[in-house]
Amino acid sequence: MRDRERKARFDKTRPNARQRGYTREWDKARAEFLSAHPICRYCPEPANVVDHVKPHRGDMRLFWSRSNWQPLCTPCHSSIKQSRERRT
């Protein structure tokens, strides 16, 4: 319950997706990247998420650095990647 409350407080102050850089330009770059890298990095499923290997935390240079991108499927992004980030 505390975790849920903490997340709710954080979400109230968090900028929306567009404000965090997920614009039309991102949508285009994401589609191009997934076309070139169609398989999840962690499993053999089709990738549908472009994940930032190192969280960019608002750093737009890191956000746009393709060397910091990896293709993931939603289940791997939502489980494996998120649990790894919580440990750092």
Rank of each mutant, 00 (worst) to 15 (best):
M1D: 10
M1R: 12
M1P: 09
R2E: 14
D3P: 02
R4S: 13
R6A: 15
R6Q: 12
R6D: 10
A8W: 06
R9A: 12
R9T: 05
D11T: 07
K12I: 02
K12A: 10
T13G: 08
T13H: 09
P15M: 07
N16P: 01
N16V: 00
R18V: 13
R18I: 14
R18E: 13
R18G: 05
Q19G: 09
R20T: 07
R20H: 04
R20K: 13
G21R: 05
G21K: 03
G21W: 04
Y22L: 06
T23R: 02
R24F: 09
E25V: 08
E25D: 12
W26Y: 08
D27E: 14
D27G: 01
K28T: 14
A29Y: 02
R30W: 01
R30C: 06
A31D: 13
E32M: 07
L34W: 01
S35R: 14
A36H: 04
H37P: 09
P38Y: 02
I39V: 15
I39G: 02
C40P: 01
R41F: 11
C43Y: 00
E45W: 04
E45S: 15
E45L: 15
A47D: 02
N48T: 13
N48I: 03
V49Y: 06
V49I: 15
V50M: 00
D51N: 14
H52A: 06
H56V: 08
D59N: 15
D59Y: 07
M60H: 11
M60D: 04
M60V: 06
M60N: 04
M60W: 10
R61P: 00
F63P: 03
S67R: 10
W69R: 10
Q70K: 07
Q70G: 04
P71T: 06
P71C: 01
C73F: 09
T74S: 13
T74Q: 14
T74D: 11
T74Y: 13
C76L: 11
H77V: 05
H77K: 05
H77G: 03
S78M: 12
K81W: 05
K81L: 11
S83V: 12
S83N: 12
R84G: 05
R84V: 10
R84A: 13
R84D: 10
R84K: 14
E85H: 13
E85C: 03
R86P: 00
R86D: 11
R86Y: 09
T88K: 11
T88A: 10
